[in-house]
Nucleic acid binder design. Structure first.
Lengths: 133, 133
DNA sequence: GTATCTGCAAAAGATTTGCAGCAAG
DNA sequence: CTTGCTGCAAATCTTTTGCAGATAC
């Protein structure tokens, strides 16, 4: 089946692409809906289509939310601030080596990995201290 | 507030403890319900209570399901077979070192991490080959 | 005894789907 | 034109919640 690039889908993709951070379906809907009126189910269907084309990726985090981001050419992981939800890119992937070891040790055919390092970013930490004074 | 250890909660905890793998709320409910008739909401409330006491831990995976397991004294991660859902323990944690580096580099106060390595276990791989013959 | 569980049914939140009409290629 | 997109409302799935009665300590 062919995927049609409609105005709404283009808008949804640009909302995701332009965002500096990962967005939830609802954030994407809210943002896109301001420019072009659309239904949440349109957003969900568009997200599926974009995922199928590998134009975007999703990550389900331990906070229970599902986040979407534009696919980048580098394989990247992130530090996530549990306070403000900002993310910081981590250089390199610490798992490549581990995966080789694991393949040899366990016989698993490894197909993917996901990880999430959480903490409080310097900004939020500072705010915290200020409010405690 | 005090937490009461009722028969049902004890049963729920033993179901989780006795299981060799991570279980979903529904699996826990189904298993426990066979011994002592109970309502799903009892299971959810028990899971929250047990999480609060740190007797169990939960993990939300990329398959969208939430899994629970008995808390163990070692810090552990797992290889997950995306076919049969079996998990295999990984020795050591590859992130301890990375976290130190990240703290220094980014100023983040790191509070936790979660990761998930997925693949096909040797068993499932074998089954696959057999069925293709 | 009294605070905390439990069952039940209803509610909530996120996502999916059926169907009829609309738009892209 | 024909396949695939969209809106809407209803359905789904998982988890939560209010309340009245039951139970642990």
């Amino acid at each position: 089946m062919e995927v049609k690039l409609t105005k709404k889908r283009a808008l949804i993709l640009s909302v995701i692409t332009d965002s500096s951070h990962f967005m939830t379906a609802d954030e994407i809907y809210t943002a896109a809906n301001q420019t072009l009126h659309m239904n949440p189910s349109t957003v969900y269907r568009a997200l599926h289509a974009l995922l199928d084309c590998h134009l975007i990726e999703k990550q389900i985090r331990q906070d229970g939310n599902t986040y979407y981001k534009r696919t980048s050419n580098e394989h990247r992981h992130h530090l996530i601030c549990t306070n403000c939800n900002r993310t910081i890119d981590i250089d390199g992937c610490p798992l490549a080596e581990l995966e080789n070891t694991l393949t040899t040790k366990t016989g698993f055919k490894i197909t993917g990995h996901n990880f999430e390092i959480t903490g409080i970013c310097p900004n939020c930490e500072e705010q915290n201290h200020k409010s405690e004074e």
